[in-house]
Design a protein around this nucleic acid. Structure first.
Lengths: 188, 188
DNA sequence: TTGATAATTGGACTCAGTACAAGAATAGAT
DNA sequence: ATCTATTCTTGTACTGAGTCCAATTATCAA
């Protein structure tokens, strides 16, 4: 993946996963907003500076699962996979337990501004990826507006599928069902 | 609008517009990221606390035009207007000069995380409004996924139109042309 | 003049995120 | 074993956004 060690040097301790676990615990106990980075690193037995070696922002902790999925999608697209195929393949790796902390937190603490905006950052990333994929497979379309609309529409459908799947609760169908249905709705 | 005075009390001085103007100047001189709230309020001749009486966040200053447009759209929808009509009417009020500071700032300082996320917050607001409007005029559709897809798709088309219009530069056509075209692309 | 109301202000505070230099742990080479 | 390059880790100091609140000030109405 991204964090592959190449040469020698001081090896990473298990800091990353330790931090993730400490954060998950604390968020359950105190909620996201009620937990400081200091508390997380203290429980993880790690210095505060180390936290920012591993995460760009506290809100990254809410979206680790989503980010990993987006990374996987990105990798497939970089390999030249067709967009819809790449989406399907990535979705098939997302089991029912892969509900981002952000969602459980939203239920507990309402939809804070930070929660919304950090989540929308991921949507923005998805839109960028979709647009790049569309432009890489140009079905003779170069009109700026048409490309922009297609990218936003497709990304919007994917997000709708994903969020509906999330809200489906325990008895929901697999994510791929929702995706197929959503994509069918926007295929002209 | 929203800030109509009803009863007595100390009247607002011209703080809001003074702050907006000071901020616009400073952003041009120093860029958004290079300007602190302190500097803005100092130039505006106003206390720092007053700034946060008028704005929830520094990034609000980047999106004042967009927020006003969204307010106008919201008001029309609250009055029961049809979604497409409300969008058209609102768009007709947006002249070629109504390019948010965010866009000019993006050209200067690249697409910073804060710029992206604050902008996407507006997209989120638009999606919410579109979804509410769709559910208020139910063409017998109650399936959660279908509603979510429609809302995201339509909002995505609107955003695509708007951002393409923005990027069109000086010689662009009126915003309503872009919107009509984008909406036509997603009308089934 | 008096009172109610609401804007403004200063000041202290919390916390996320940045910057950087010093220290610690490893692999590989000599 | 020792040295060296590499890279993770940590302490520390700092900036700046956003919150909170009590005190002050400007206006309207009675």
């Amino acid at each position: 993946m991204s964090t592959e060690r190449i040469t020698a040097g001081r090896p990473r301790s298990s800091s990353r996963s330790t931090i993730e676990e400490a954060a998950a615990e604390l968020f359950l106990e105190q909620s996201y907003g009620g937990t400081t980075v200091d508390e997380i690193t203290q429980r993880a037995g790690v210095s505060r500076a180390t936290f920012f070696n591993y995460f760009d922002a506290k809100s990254d902790l809410l979206w680790m699962d989503a980010d990993r999925a987006l990374d996987a999608l990105d990798a497939r697209l970089a390999n030249g996979a067709e967009l819809i195929d790449a989406v399907s393949a990535t979705a098939s790796e997302i089991g029912p337990e892969r509900v981002p902390l952000a969602v459980t937190q939203a239920e507990v603490m309402g939809t804070g501004e930070e929660l919304v905006s950090s989540g929308l950052v991921r949507v923005g990333r998805l839109v960028s990826m979709v647009r790049a994929a569309i432009m890489a497979h140009p079905p003779q379309e170069h009109d700026e507006l048409v490309v922009a609309v297609r990218a936003n529409v497709l990304a919007g459908a994917l997000v709708a599928a994903w969020s509906t799947w999330i809200r489906g609760g325990v008895e929901r169908r697999p994510l791929s069902r929702y995706l197929d249905e959503a994509i069918a709705l926007v295929q002209l």
